[in-house]
Nucleic acid binder design. Structure first.
Lengths: 207, 207
DNA sequence: ACGATACGCAACGGTCGCGTTTCGAAAACT
DNA sequence: AGTTTTCGAAACGCGACCGTTGCGTATCGT
């Protein structure tokens, strides 16, 4: 937490309503695609219906405000259902897809993809707080698949993860009216990945 | 070409040196991660060692300048070597990787990933001019593989492409001092994709 | 030579956001 | 009641960039 400490419990307490409004406004704007460098305290204050003073009293600078706001996004990845690897992978990819459509969760990809170069500190904190736990959850699904014998024992976990996650991000980022994301993309991705591209007459047709 | 027409060949001709310097400065800044909305004509002029007038004389607005500058990036994808599908795919992925490291070619991914929401017109023109030809070249490699029998006849071309391209973009975007891109990533990606994740005792070990 | 156009440069008035300060009112404490 | 702190609002001086204009110079065609 990078919030500036309040001095004591003496006077009027800080408004939680105002604080929430500020964080909400920040996240909304980031979700809409506003860059961190473009994000102005003035705009956040207006959108939150709050005086600039109220923001500067709590956060020393814009970066701290953004970090604290993003930290509220740390929703845990749900434990996968566990029927089989295929179902687990599809479940996670579907979560990713839903996140790309919900304004609030677009923040994650917007920050992760756009701000790495310009705000390395912010990016590092964000990565450890939000990105890495998700990657780890995804890795765990794949490792479990190897353990159960569903996946090849020599499977390259990192490469496999980047293929599925990367493809999903690729589609959601490139999507638009001309190129919508197919509804069954998670299933198709997982099936193609599990099966492999190569034509191999010795292999049975996938069920 | 959205450049403003020069009136006639009467007076002093426009300096090609200045024009090149302007475009170069624009592309350099975009490659360095400057957003289109952040890109200021003033900064471009300073960097190019040129008066603002010289820019405004040629382009009506920032967006036109950016479009024309990006249009100079339309380097053709080389014809793939053609030894086999694996070699062709690896070749294209290596091109993508090299583009992520060369400043000038970072423009492509920076624009493609960051500006879609805010500059739909620019994005559409850029996509048709630069992105789509590359996607099509990639698709062709996969289609050829299906035709030669190397790839499954029912392979989902779009999904397959997004897996390879998406994974490559994912790695290059996420890369940094902490998470470098493995040198043999193209090979590993292609091999995992061709082979499939699933453990299948009836299949021979991949060569 | 002469007119026309482009050059780099500097300055214009205007807008926006910065971070700070001041203000009167509101809401907690002793 | 009196003190302390926060509240939203408004204004401050500052700097960046906007798009335009005028300046003296340079470089072309006629």
């Amino acid at each position: 937490m990078t919030t500036i400490q309040e001095s004591a419990g003496r006077g009027r307490p800080r408004s939680e309503r105002a604080e929430k409004a500020i964080v909400d406004a920040t996240l909304d704007m980031i979700g809409e695609g506003v860059t961190v460098s473009e994000l102005s305290i003035e705009a956040v204050a207006n959108r939150a219906g709050v005086g600039k003073t109220t923001i500067y009293r709590r956060w020393a600078n814009k970066e701290d405000l953004v970090v604290d706001s993003l930290a509220t996004l740390r929703l845990p990845m749900p434990e996968p259902g566990g029927a089989d690897v295929r179902a687990d992978l599809i479940e996670y990819l579907k979560i990713m897809r839903s996140e790309s459509s919900e304004l609030r969760n677009r923040c994650i990809t917007n920050i992760a993809l756009n701000e790495a170069d310009r705000y390395p500190d912010l990016y590092r904190r964000f990565r450890e707080l939000v990105i890495e736990p998700r990657r780890e959850a995804f890795r765990q699904v794949l490792r479990r698949g190897v353990a159960t014998g569903e996946l090849r024992p020599d499977l390259d976990i990192e490469v496999a993860m980047s293929m599925l996650v990367g493809a999903m991000l690729f589609h959601t980022k490139m999507s638009g009216p001309d190129y919508p994301v197919p509804g069954d993309l998670p299933e198709r991705l997982v099936d193609e990945a599990l099966r492999g591209f190569r034509y191999d007459v010795t292999r049975n047709v996938a069920s």
